[in-house]
Write a protein that binds this DNA or RNA. Structure first.
Lengths: 353, 353
DNA sequence: TCCTTATTTTGAATCGATTCAAAATAAACG
DNA sequence: CGTTTATTTTGAATCGATTCAAAATAAGGA
């Protein structure tokens, strides 16, 4: 039951009509006389013709009606990382409305015959640039299709990109803890560089960190400074944005003489791991330790306790990106959207004692 | 910066070589003399030619290197439904290993120009048939591409399908509760028919239910019978597999004179909603009420308490499905894989009193 | 019946590459 | 230097449809 080798031309010949008419029967049935249409359809059925092959149509039409979402991550990333998943859900919503399909593309695999940036059959790309952004953009440029980069921390203004205001968002998070009265605060940072685990000295932030975590730290610092806290007074523990390194970071933070009363986590994922570590250690959130996340993924609303966080405008990001691709109206320069502080149950004033 | 309108033929002409040679420069560079290759590449660069257009190549080669995963659900389903997501993650893992791409396809949208089953550029389909299975299979058949149906509850043996042994799995779940000593048990069923919410009489199960929930109920009944419990003694509450209807079902169940001491939930998703309802009502799991889920999604391992469940062999399902599509070695008949009881913290013996 | 207008149908061109038998060129050898 | 063999290059056919100007046919009006 493999695809029959019957072509439109065969049907046309067998039905005694021109190929043009046969084509019309399938793609613009209203223009062909009913009697002819019926005959052609019958012949097609008899021959086992399954309708116009999409590949032929595509070559002519040039448009696929699908967008690719690419990241320098394995395919599993799109379905299990909370941030990616939330964004994909938002993108799915927009695509549903416009009848657009989604192809997920992993840019890790460079093999010739593999499905990758230059073989994906799509009308354009949305790039998730959390890591390896430059390379991803470079690869995509070659393809000469419209694309828009999300979460790109790159200065190059010629790249169409849509971002969030990490500095303001992070500052809002820190300010929230400070307003509650916390003064002994620690930062849980995220990154993919092995060197950036364990305690990170302030001067390394600008030298070694990717743009996104760097900006967030600057946002934190900004608010901390408003309350007279120096950079040195706030330890930064680096994680690899996964469970093991987060648990190790918590271990380090809480083996200090003066463990923090509040934690600024740079993602909800890390925040939730941290909460789990605290709960297992018998420390109560928010009574013993307050914690605030970043991103605003759905898990943050259902965790126990529900996580206070700074939410990204996922729906807005998705809407703008998809529209930009489909209408080929790419932003001329980098836009940064605002985040929103969402106060839930994981933050409270520090214990009186 | 739209895709340049430079074609391979233009490059060939400008470089003074035949189109065949130009093609070889890109797709089989080793056969063309270095000097010529360099010249052609230079010309290509100067003209702004971005390499062979994938659409042309496709038409010739016929193979896309991507599989489609389709469901009669919106696109968001693939990224936020726990079961779908877990399966997609498993499929992603297999595809990563073989350099295969994934396109997600919603079969809800029937519009002409929308991306759907017959316009998706893929080498084959994996169908998630939780609902509307027949229609989905029907649509896919027309496309004449290899496909395999998952979670299909259809008798038609001519459809290549891979399933799980719902009856045995459900029986194992029920047996677990019975062995713990529970005798007052309720079933939380799932479905998409509005008529099947609220209490469902046993005789309606065979008449109105889809195959998957029906089989699970039969599995439950089978184990219950082993312990002398009649069908009538075990209330079935129907849900639409979402939060509101699950909460309503719980409400109904626990407003009875003799509320259940244990719940057989037909999916982890519903089980988790039910646990939330119980927790909010001050009922402790598993001390006051035991609950067992179905599916074995990751959320079940991180919920509080961690959910006892019957786990599907997702990795195995994914491996077999993807291989079947890529190698066009579709199973001749329905296969049913075994499930595994995973005992965690949401089940315990009933209270002594 | 003849002319005009509306509706259908035709057939060749086109989309952008790959493929492969045959021709051309280069290298190797006695 | 002439043959034989190996390496490159050519050019036309092919993949499977859509498109559109032009031709054919049908319908309407006087």
């Amino acid at each position: 039951m493999v695809r029959g080798n019957v072509r439109l031309a065969d049907v046309a010949r067998a039905a005694g009509v021109s190929q043009g008419t046969a084509s019309n029967v399938f793609s613009r049935p209203e223009v062909v006389r009913e009697e002819v249409r019926e005959r052609v359809l019958k012949v097609a059925r008899d021959l086992g013709y399954g309708g116009p092959d999409i590949k032929g149509r595509l070559l002519r039409a040039g448009r696929v009606n699908a967008i690719g979402v690419a990241a320098v991550e394995p395919l599993t990333y799109f379905f299990d990382d909370p941030w990616a998943r939330t964004l994909m859900t938002a993108i799915g919503e927009v695509c549903d409305a416009s009848g657009t399909g989604i192809a997920v593309v992993s840019a890790m695999n460079e093999e010739r015959l593999a499905w990758n940036i230059n073989s994906a059959l799509v009308d354009g790309f949305i790039l998730l640039c959390v890591e390896g952004g430059e390379r991803l953009v470079e690869l995509t440029r070659q393809r000469q299709l419209p694309f828009i980069a999300l979460a790109l921390g790159i200065e190059d203004e010629t790249i169409p990109a849509l971002g969030i205001d990490n500095i303001c968002g992070a500052a809002a998070a820190a300010r929230h803890l400070l307003e509650l009265g916390h003064r002994n605060i620690a930062i849980l940072s995220i990154g993919d560089v092995d060197g950036l685990v364990g305690q990170i000295a302030p001067e390394r932030v600008d030298q070694e960190m990717d743009a996104t975590p760097r900006d967030r730290i600057h946002g934190y610092w900004q608010a901390l400074a408003e309350y007279g806290l120096s950079r040195e007074a706030v330890p930064i523990e680096g994680t690899l944005h996964d469970r093991p390194s987060t648990l190790r970071a918590m271990e380090a933070l809480f083996s200090s003489d003066t463990p923090p009363t509040a934690i600024l986590a740079m993602s909800d994922k890390v925040a939730i791991y941290a909460m789990q570590w605290l709960t297992e250690r018998g420390l109560k959130v928010p009574e013993d330790v307050s914690i605030i996340g970043f991103d605003g993924v759905p898990e943050a609303a259902t965790s126990l306790p529900r996580l206070t966080t700074v939410a990204q405008p996922f729906a807005e990001i998705a809407r703008r990106s998809v529209t930009a691709i489909l209408e080929n109206a790419l932003p001329e320069n980098h836009e940064a959207l605002d985040l929103e502080l969402v106060v839930r149950d994981s933050t409270a004033p520090p214990r009186a004692d």
